[in-house]
Design a protein around this nucleic acid. Structure first.
Lengths: 205, 205
DNA sequence: TATTTTTTAGTACATTTGTACTATATAATA
DNA sequence: TATTATATAGTACAAATGTACTAAAAAATA
């Protein structure tokens, strides 16, 4: 990608993340980069183009990490690793999740892609849960849809925990451990004695 | 409250909920009500005034329900009732949670109030958990901060599950059972045998 | 009824925003 | 070097938006 084109993306990401997508106009970005508005529209004709590219950049990066996980061994530890990486990218592209409904409303291609992504994540989660059950680290389902609902909650927590953090300025820096804990403690009560041992070791409790 | 003033609030709520707060201008509301822009600004001088009033309307209503819960007996059933009522109001005023970061960013009084509200909800939740433990319906904490983290997840799920639902048009109508399930299934694995029996009866499984 | 207050309509205006257009400069290429 | 393609600056403009202001209408009150 051209240098200028990349700089615009970087500035966009930075500004979207800090000011919120609704407070960033094309001029905000061109002023920030000290380039003319004409130059900006030359590279990105419509304002949606910028955050659409950023969104798909995000998707590309998490998909790559997910691919690596699927090809490796899928135990509790490497799953924890994957989740940590997801959190990293969710934080990096946090404007997507902070201004989620605005973005979804204005861009059907993003909406469609996100919908598919959620399904992929769900099936990976449920597959991983099944493997953990086979490995006797997790107990089988006790009530119908138990793990589907668990996924749904974890999906919401993963994608929108940043909204809760806007409140206490925690948003300004990334706290790996905190987010990982938030996620994995949700798994804890479903673990077997064996699984709990692994868990405690993993989180050094 | 004056009739016109109330109508403006109702129209605002309706339009914010369906179009998103960023797509609703003062003129959108005055056009909707077929009144002049001047009339609107006469009742609400600044645009923030409208959704600020709506936010505090929401807070007043959930606080009233919460007060009733605290004065009654605090078992699993009435707690389930309270949560259902919370969901009702979260849905009614859903624009607050769909455009959360926009609202928080523009109105410090809302931010401050929400922060306090979250703390109140947390202490109610933890108190209720303690009572359920005393009633032998819930098991004691196994790892440090277990129930605090559980609260945090439930708080995020409660306030932002609608964001996940924008995707599949589920947002267009309220589904009580679904949301209640989403919330209470999170409690299930922490319940004792006694608690699980109550739970299954409550949700008619 | 006369007067005052409240409500409403209509208009005006500065600002912001997205985007198109033109001209110039820079880089690439023949 | 001459020509062509790409990149940049600068400007223009319509639409939208928040909000102020004025005058008229309606309601309340004396």
């Amino acid at each position: 990608m051209k240098k200028r084109k990349k700089h615009i993306l970087e500035a966009g990401l930075e500004l979207y993340n800090t000011l919120g997508i609704t407070n960033v106009s094309q001029r905000t970005i061109s002023d920030f980069l000290k380039i003319s508005p004409g130059n900006l529209t030359y590279h990105y004709k419509k304002k949606e183009d910028i955050y659409r590219v950023l969104y798909f950049e995000f998707v590309g990066q998490v998909q790559e990490k997910t691919r690596l996980f699927l090809n490796g061994k899928r135990d509790l530890k490497s799953f924890a690793n994957l989740i940590e990486e997801w959190f990293f990218y969710i934080y990096k592209y946090r404007f997507i999740f902070l201004d989620f409904s605005t973005i979804i409303r204005t861009d059907p291609t993003i909406k469609e892609n996100y919908l598919a992504l959620v399904e992929v994540r769900k099936s990976i989660f449920l597959k991983t849960v099944n493997e953990l059950i086979n490995q006797k680290s997790m107990r089988p389902q006790e009530v119908p849809h138990e793990y589907e609902l668990l996924y749904k909650r974890l999906h919401i927590v993963s994608d929108f925990f940043l909204n809760a953090n806007v409140m206490d300025r925690k948003i300004e820096k990334l706290n790996h451990t905190e987010h990982k804990e938030l996620f994995f403690y949700a798994l804890f009560p479903y673990l077997t004695t064996k699984g709990k041992k692994e868990f405690l070791k993993l989180f050094a409790l």
